[in-house]
């Protein structure tokens, strides 16, 4: 399915290092600590999933990695260099699709290329990613004419068209129905294998994390710190009823504070 993309884009990937990062938001003089001494290293081309309770600071961590925010203390590095500003090499797919309502789906996807003056050179990729997220027929629709899931797929396409070296995904499949979700997970996996970018996926779905990631990191409640790290060595394609995955799932749920019978 991801063939067109696979052939067109041999992408390099980058390493992401988070070193002793703590982050706090200042709100009307009060400060809210969100991250507490988080350290993690993601190798180039690795697929890491972040799990954690709602409001613990997962999105915040992604914003730091995207360069939209600077950590209060600690360092966030790409290939050893500090991340100081956003850069289209590291693209964040936001939790809400946040499509520009005044742009059609096609124009939304074109945003990154347009902003960097690459529309002429790479414009053909727009049709490829449209096909990839199954929105070929909706290129000229405006965001308010899309369903929630379609909007999220369009947002994913808007990131992918830029051939990011690091793809930061904030619950990208949250609004999809379970079938589309499965399909998109497979698409993402194919894409990741063929394009070779580094992926950091925030999700609240333990199974999704286990099916996709090389490594699953579990965060504590706010302020988030890393409470567990699990390596998933199973080769792809993985089966969700695979015995070792089921065991991992149980232990992950326990780490998240949810015991048995779930």
């Amino acid at each position: 399915m991801a063939l067109a993309l696979a052939e067109a884009t041999p992408v390099e990937s980058i390493a992401l290092d988070v070193e002793g990062v703590s982050h706090r938001y200042e709100l009307d003089g009060k400060s809210l600590q969100v991250l507490d001494n988080v350290s993690l290293t993601i190798a180039p081309g690795e697929f890491v999933a972040l799990l954690g309770p709602s409001g613990c600071g997962k999105s915040t961590l992604l914003r730091l990695a995207a360069g939209l925010e600077t950590a209060t203390t600690g360092k966030v590095l790409e290939d050893g260099r500090p991340i100081t500003a956003p850069n289209p090499d590291r693209i964040l797919v936001f939790q809400d699709a946040t499509l520009f309502p005044w742009r059609t789906v096609r124009a939304n996807i074109a945003t990154g290329l347009e902003a960097r003056g690459l529309l002429g050179e790479k414009g053909f990729r727009i049709d490829e990613v449209l096909k990839l997220v199954k929105l070929e027929g909706f290129a000229d629709f405006y965001p308010h004419q899309l369903s929630g899931g379609m909007a999220q797929r369009a947002a994913l396409a808007r990131a992918l068209v830029n051939d990011p070296k690091l793809l930061l995904l904030d619950e990208p499949f949250g609004k999809l129905d379970s079938l589309t979700r499965l399909r998109m997970q497979n698409e993402l996996l194919d894409l990741w294998k063929s394009a070779g970018f580094t992926a950091l996926l925030v999700t609240h779905d333990v199974e999704e994390a286990l099916l996709l990631a090389d490594r699953v990191i579990v965060l504590s409640d706010r302020p988030a710190s890393i409470v567990a790290e699990i390596r998933v060595d199973q080769p792809h394609p993985r089966r969700r009823d695979d015995a070792s995955l089921v065991a991992l799932r149980r232990s992950l749920l326990e780490k998240l504070g949810i015991s048995h019978d779930v």
Partner: peptide, 27 residues
């Protein structure tokens, strides 16, 4: 204008000019 529109545009490589003319003004 919704701040997230600027965030999205910035991660996609937009400069200030783009933010003003292609995000702030149409929005």
């Amino acid at each position: 204008v919704n701040r997230s529109f600027y965030d999205v545009a910035r991660t996609l490589g937009a400069d200030n000019r783009f933010l003003i003319f292609k995000v702030a003004i149409p929005a």
